[in-house]
Design a protein around this nucleic acid. Sequence first.
DNA 1: ACGGTGTTGGACTGGTGAGTCTTGTTTGTG
DNA 2: CACAAACAAGACTCACCAGTCCAACACCGT
Lengths: 210, 210
Amino acid sequence: MHDSTRPSSQRKRRDIFQAAELVFLRDGFVGASMDEVAQLSGVSKQTIYNHFGSKGDLFVALVSWMTTSAGDWVRPEPLELPEGTDVADYLEEYAVRQLTAVLDPRLLRLRRLVIGEVSRFPDLARALWENGPERAIDALEGLFGRLSNDGVLLDTDPHLAAETYNWLVMSAPLNKAMLMGDDHLPDAKALREHAREAVRVFLAAYRAHP
Amino acid sequence: MHDSTRPSSQRKRRDIFQAAELVFLRDGFVGASMDEVAQLSGVSKQTIYNHFGSKGDLFVALVSWMTTSAGDWVRPEPLELPEGTDVADYLEEYAVRQLTAVLDPRLLRLRRLVIGEVSRFPDLARALWENGPERAIDALEGLFGRLSNDGVLLDTDPHLAAETYNWLVMSAPLNKAMLMGDDHLPDAKALREHAREAVRVFLAAYRAHP
DNA sequence: ACGGTGTTGGACTGGTGAGTCTTGTTTGTG
DNA sequence: CACAAACAAGACTCACCAGTCCAACACCGT
């Protein structure tokens, strides 16, 4: 609702986001209290309503801010297999990076929150889908298409292959984390082993037979 | 809080559950109103508080009721490959059954709700995990162990194989449904094709080479 | 230094919701 | 039939919350 470029305004805006993140992630959308956000951010309630028009608007802005600002967790640059690199090694490395990024507790809580609010904020959930899984799958699809042309992978639908690989890597830890909380996350070794097995299964089904 | 075996009480208990299901699944735990549950169930508020001590207790009872009463969606009997049946056909059939069961909108909404309330009700989420994915994986593990002994599958960790197969089948549609709402569910044909591809990938990686 | 914009703190409104209480009525059982 | 437990209906308490209003104050560019 406001567009002040004053430095103090920008600072306050960021403080509001930080407090809102804490409160919304802890109490959910309905359970969160704007008074607490105000108090925790050291900002008056009126100021919040000047920056964001309503509780719902603040929530939407917060989720967008969290997904884009921490948007490094999905590689924007297209995936490319460096010359002379083993496919298995490359895919395994990609899997480990992606897993450690997505299994960040902050992102897990955000994901739970957005999933719980699907019926109230369907657009947010859709945005999270498109910036998360869909973007990752699209990036993989590009890579797999090229690998098919090079005769490394079978000549099948690259999108289907990308989907399969993405979920082979992500689904078991992610779905478990969704329900089991942040206290049962796999450690680095378990993650590595999971990634290796995912790559093994994927290549068994999609590698071209020479 | 009460243990009346009177038939009218049982009836009212069921009515309360039905109304609570509607309200909680629609508005979430915090957003749900006990007054509305009372009015919708045609039962006085006091009666609700006689049966269940508090809003939280009603919520816990409701989720338990929904997971167990509709617990047919996971086969209680251990999985068994009938004599002379093709493994691929059997696994594909199992996948389609499991998918149609889990992709029921009612269960999807319940899952979203429980995921959104992980921090408030961690026990519920854990119970949903154990009665859902974990039980399905355990059942598959038994089957795969036997198939390994019979030389049909590779002699690898049957639990790992079960986990892989379970998520190969479930993850793509389930995770998409979690975020994209109940309006983008795959139809029967898409489900069948997805199941077939999951089986193909799984057997490519786990079938014993003769 | 000045003036406008942003900010503050707190009071205030209107509404809602969980849980309790009361009184009178229903319902199943001995 | 009689009795006790369960129920209905609604008023009631207490607390909380989204959003607004207002008068005094702080900040910043000109």
